[in-house]
Nucleic acid binder design. Structure first.
Lengths: 297, 297
DNA sequence: TGCCATCTGTGCATTTCTCCACCAAACACC
DNA sequence: GGTGTTTGGTGGAGAAATGCACAGATGGCA
């Protein structure tokens, strides 16, 4: 049998990854003397130098780099395993990781706050990122996705909320340019559109198809960038009613239309979908969504 | 981060595999009390029961079986890694990085070509640069250095070859200026010297000490710049016999002298010096050097 | 039913490992 | 060139993990 101490491998992994004993010690939460002894012990057992020592740190040898590859994969797999296991229990306790795109944070946060109120033993981790978190890697228990229904094989998706969008502009903009008459005749008004050629969001696609390109004077690549642009008085842009409700410097220019709607989905991994924790969370969120403005087909 | 103790995972793996604490303890070579405490600690961290305890042993739960799968794969990968690392020290494969100053490339390249012929699995990387590659940073396995014996503490240096130098000039130069009578009376001849005040190369130091400064009409800061200067007919400069052998537009003005010799060294880092790969390379190069012109003390 | 074998579980002594403080060397920067 | 910061290395005190011995529980077997 080879490695009879997986902890030493983990230590060596951090040293190879970070390049210094001190850094690895900090990452592992142990003293750097411990790290040095682990490495020495490992190299003695393997009868091979894993690192070349110098004043600026530890540089992995070929063997050290090989170990880095393998241990990185191990670390990933164990992290995924931990998240799977933590989600699997019958109790609604421990950790629950829920992810969404960043724009939905204001919408979801009150719901999650109430959910945590009901389950004080639960530590809720709410992660937002532009990249899609991979449920099959155990990165999250529940994901809120927008757009077309996800087609990942091991993912369970259910309809969550049909988010409506309206067109807004700042009072300042309206004072300077007036209100547009209709969407068929937009005059010289400036619209905030997508920098993408084939935008995913339905309202962006509609805008591209129905408003002259000359009128789309400002383009963004992330939906979160729309609101600041509206508030700055750049032009007319899409937003949700709940996002602009509290602001008195913003006016609704055109009311919501069904074709602008964006479908939100609740997505879980099939292995976790049955568990009490995930089911509790899902049903709570769906119940909470009923309080939101009526959903138009 | 989830699993902060890979040893506990390894322990749980053996328990899941064998079904009993006692069996796992025997397999791991530890006391069964240790195994129990590892499992308890793991389950506490994961907030999930990994095993159902009964008098006949431990039966993995769903989570325990999940862990079994992942840890089995980890165990396999680590075992393979151990075999690779342990075997690597004894075989001549993978990458071998050898460095030298740029002037030596024509001398070393044939040797390296023959070396690679003998070891087809080896990817040889030959790096030349003006800066000195640092072996202690793992930048190279073998370095060919010139001059005084390197005194880096962790470097192993051995004599490689005593490179002789002679003085050459282009035929064109000789036709215009004639051949100098002796090195004691250089007349109006132009010599190519070093731009450095205290040149490292022995022949440059000799030139500075024995030839009037007025005759050193062209100065270079890199040895590689000498040959083009000679060929351009600027003056008389140092070069090696093997460098000028094939050229019919260059003549040897003065024969080699022992005091012009430059000692070449084979340098390795102490951590890599013992490995089969490095040793094979070193002995091959030393053997090859015997074919070169006889070395004068 | 009684005995034995095979498990798990726990308090206590001991060993091992880790942390701390300090040192030395090298690099960066003024 | 001197100084400050970052890095690895080492011996001794303390804490944490381990091993040991023994207890308890269950199932097989005659």
């Amino acid at each position: 049998m080879a490695f009879n101490d997986w902890d030493e491998v983990r230590t060596a992994f951090q040293v190879a990854r970070l390049g210094t004993v001190s850094g690895a010690a900090q990452a592992l939460g142990v003293h750097h003397a411990t790290v040095i002894r682990h490495i020495d012990s490992l190299e003695q057992k393997l009868e091979t130098k894993l690192f070349q020592r110098h004043a600026r740190g530890y540089t992995p040898t070929e063997a050290g780099n090989d170990l880095l590859q393998v241990a990185q994969s191990t670390d990933d797999q164990l992290a995924q395993l931990a998240n799977r296991i933590k989600g699997r229990g019958n109790e609604v306790t421990g950790e629950l990781i829920i992810t969404s795109i960043a724009v939905l944070a204001p919408l979801l946060s009150p719901a999650l706050a109430a959910f945590r109120e009901e389950h004080p033993d639960l530590r809720v981790k709410f992660l937002t990122d532009e990249r899609v978190f991979r449920l099959e890697y155990g990165e999250a228990h529940v994901a809120v996705r927008a757009g077309s229904p996800p087609d990942q094989p091991d993912n369970v998706a259910q309809k969550f909320y049909n988010q409506g969008f309206a067109l807004y502009a700042s009072k300042d903009y309206v004072e300077r340019h007036g209100m547009p008459e209709s969407l068929e005749d937009v005059g010289n008004h400036v619209f905030i559109g997508s920098a993408d050629d084939t935008p995913r969001a339905p309202f962006f696609a509609w805008l591209k198809a129905n408003v002259p390109a000359a009128n789309i004077g400002f383009q963004v690549n992330q939906v979160t960038a729309i609101a600041p642009a509206i508030h700055a008085g750049i032009g007319i842009g899409f937003s949700t009613t709940w996002a602009e409700a509290g602001r008195d410097d913003v006016v609704q220019v055109f009311a919501p239309r069904p074709e602008w709607n964006s479908q939100l989905w609740l997505v879980t991994h099939v292995d976790l979908h049955r568990t009490a924790k995930v089911q509790t969370c899902l049903s709570f969120l769906k119940e909470w969504a009923k309080r939101w403005p009526a959903q138009e087909a």
